[in-house]
């Protein structure tokens, strides 16, 4: 089966400092990543802040222009599309954002918010659109009597449901969920995760699920890609990554997650030192300054992907 979404050598660099300064430096937000998502599959993209996962999401959605690399959607190169052809692609892929308070226009009613995509793409008559909004609201666990209310009248979890309804409006094939539950309380988080899972199953959605929380990602994903400082360090089947992580970064990420089980203690000591700045990326393997396994070679030479077990790992020492 050919992938629904494929990205090749995707790069996003930002110049930092003054345009007129002599030492203008480059912030390497995303530094050459390849990914493929197959229809009906969920790809989990996990990493800490500044690893480039949200930048990747925005490039896939064509909200940011990549510095280099290609994005293929259903076999079509969408990297440089614009105008009507970009609009046609937008109908087929949608995004759900993290912050349920910033992602809904406070001056629009729920009905307007959810029917906006339909109106933009001129789908159905006004009456049909309204019926579709009611259907969508019900589908995400809200009610048609919520349709004429404003976002501030809802709680965080409810707002995230509205966001999801909006994303589903044009029946897209791909949903990019950028930290969709990170801003929610645990009990509400579980409601929204369950909803996303149900929707994916019932609507046969393809999903990219982005999160800093590996335990959430492993729960929702078929495949997991772990990012560190703009690069993918390990990618493979979800259960393989969660239970038999190979890359030293993935392992320390896993052991750093506080497990809600007092009988289990941390398997490895936490990583020492801080995340390097994406302006000053370490030479060779970018994880080497924090890596317990680092050798001289890691300082010099960036590792290539190799198959280890069921996953691909970019590390010299595994």
């Amino acid at each position: 089966m050919s992938p629904l979404l494929e990205i090749r050598g995707l790069v996003k660099h930002y110049p930092v400092g003054s345009r007129f300064s002599a030492q203008r430096r480059i912030l390497r937000a995303v530094d050459g990543i390849d990914l493929a998502v197959h229809p009906g599959e969920t790809l989990g993209l996990v990493g800490e802040s500044g690893c480039g996962k949200s930048t990747t999401a925005r490039m896939i959605m064509r909200l940011l222009d990549p510095t280099a690399g290609r994005i293929l959607f259903d076999g079509q190169d969408i990297t440089r599309l614009s105008g009507a052809r970009l609009k046609a692609v937008r109908r087929r892929m949608q995004i759900v954002f993290q912050d349920p308070f910033a992602s809904l226009n406070p001056r629009k009613t729920v009905e307007r918010i959810v029917s906006d995509p339909l109106e933009i793409h001129r789908i159905g008559t006004a009456a049909e659109r309204q019926a579709r909004v009611y259907e969508l609201l019900q589908r995400v666990g809200l009610d048609r009597r919520h349709a004429d209310r404003y976002p501030h009248e809802f709680s965080g979890g409810q707002r995230q449901r509205i966001s999801i309804a909006r994303a589903l409006a044009c029946a897209p094939q791909l949903i990019v969920a950028d930290e969709p539950v990170s801003a929610l309380d645990v009990s509400i988080q579980a409601q929204v995760i369950n909803l996303l899972q149900d929707l994916q199953r019932d609507l046969d959605l393809t999903m990219i699920f982005i999160s800093h929380d590996l335990s959430v990602v492993q729960y929702v994903s078929d495949t997991i890609a772990v990012m560190y400082l703009g690069k993918i360090v390990e990618v493979g089947p979800s259960q393989a990554i969660y239970h038999e992580a190979q890359h030293p970064y993935t392992r320390s990420l896993l052991s750093a997650i506080p497990v809600p089980d007092p009988t289990r203690r941390r398997s490895a000591p936490p990583l020492e030192s801080e995340l390097p700045s994406p302006i000053n990326i370490p030479s060779g393997c970018r994880f080497h300054p924090r890596c317990p396994l680092a050798t001289e070679r890691c300082r010099r030479e960036a590792p290539e992907f190799r198959m280890v077990g069921a996953q691909q790992v970019a590390c010299h020492n595994i």
Partner: peptide, 21 residues
């Protein structure tokens, strides 16, 4: 609360969230 955490749960095994707000 404990039933809501995805930790250690397999894919497809539904979480048991607390209903409502």
């Amino acid at each position: 609360l404990l039933g809501s955490t995805p930790h250690g749960r397999q894919r497809g095994e539904p979480l048991r969230p607390i209903p409502g707000q």
